[in-house]
């Protein structure tokens, strides 16, 4: 019995190393198309993990997450185009700008609950998209967006191939994973859980609920900004399409389908929303129809998501 417990405890590390090795080796036998698909999967996994902080941990509806993705991408592109700052150096600024807008938008609306908050975030997403389309301040290039952005040079190495970019995104994905794992088990992570379950009780116990929710928004938004900057690192063209409402919906679905608040769930969600549709591209228009059917079926059969966190499954079951 003792040795079994020992082995189980060591299992996560074995799994983690195994998965990392798989992630490192997986693109090698594939062609560039599938390597690009994996890159996209990585970008959306980072976006999913960042949105999971807001939706999963703090329990706040956010249906405008793509706006922060776009803000990160535009920040990186504009700094590179106008000030010739190497892309690598724009990444931290992209994070800060997206986080700052996360603060600006969430500060006045944090007292809103569920559905109301959701509407405001949708509206904010559209405001950002339309501002970009309308060439705000004459710098965003309107509907065509911006092009002519430099290639990424990392420590003297110019990143040219999909494989390079895949590894770049993988690096940040692992970093993100490490960070969100730490967050989940931190004092702040516990505060989020209390706020999600019962805000009044949390407040009565001395938790600064406004601060906790604000931090969720700021961290989640900032990290989405990083994903935007990583997008620009490979695709030297940005357009307002990055901030489309459907993008926000896809990100939201990644979090919810996989299992709200669950890190493995985000990966399952990304596979379902991004990777599989890409692989089934040959089905053409039928693809979206099947997607819809699959999602409806899932919400009926497994409302807690495909790989939910233990705690959130209990919360959902209990409400029924």
């Amino acid at each position: 019995m003792g040795s079994l417990m020992e082995r189980l405890r060591r299992m996560p590390l074995v799994w983690q190393i195994g998965l990392l090795a798989l992630a490192l080796l997986l693109p090698l036998p594939l062609n560039d198309y599938y390597r690009a698909v994996l890159w996209r999967t990585g970008i959306y996994a980072i976006l999913g993990l960042s949105l999971n902080i807001i939706v999963g941990y703090a329990g706040l509806f956010q249906l405008g997450h793509a706006a922060f993705y776009a803000l990160g991408a535009y920040t990186s592109a504009l700094l590179n185009l106008h000030f010739d700052i190497p892309l690598v150096l724009t990444w931290p600024i992209s994070i800060l700008v997206a986080a700052f807008f996360g603060y600006l938008i969430s500060r006045p609306i944090l007292h809103l609950r569920g559905d109301y908050l959701c509407i405001v975030t949708i509206a904010f997403g559209e405001v950002v998209r339309l501002a970009l389309v309308n060439n705000i301040f004459g710098i965003t290039g309107g509907a065509n967006g911006l092009s002519g952005i430099d290639q990424t040079v990392l420590f003297g190495l110019t990143l040219r191939t999909p494989l390079h970019h895949y590894y770049l995104v993988l690096f940040f994905l692992v970093l993100t994973l490490f960070a969100v794992r730490r967050l989940e088990n931190s004092r702040l992570g516990r505060a989020w859980m209390y706020v999600r379950e019962d805000e009044t009780a949390a407040e009565a116990m001395g938790i600064d609920t406004t601060w906790a929710k604000l931090l969720a928004f700021v961290l989640g938004s900032g990290w989405a900004g990083l994903a935007g900057a990583l997008y620009v690192a490979r695709i030297p063209v940005v357009s307002p399409d990055l901030a489309r409402f459907i993008e926000s919906v896809v990100m939201f679905c990644i979090v919810v389908l996989g299992g709200t608040g669950s890190i493995p769930g985000v990966f399952v969600g990304t596979l379902g929303m991004i990777t599989l549709p890409e692989i089934f591209r040959f089905l053409k228009t039928w693809r979206d129809a099947w997607m819809g059917v699959a999602m409806v079926a899932m919400m009926i059969a497994r409302p807690e998501g495909l790989w939910p966190s233990r705690r959130i499954r209990m919360e959902i079951r209990e409400k029924e």
Binding site: Y194, E197, T200, A201, A204, M205, D208, T209, M314, E315
Partner: peptide, 20 residues
Amino acid sequence: HRIVQMGVCHVPEGRRIFTT
């Protein structure tokens, strides 16, 4: 939350424990 730190703790009506 500062009031709690100052030494006033409120037990709201209706047993708001975290069931999970």
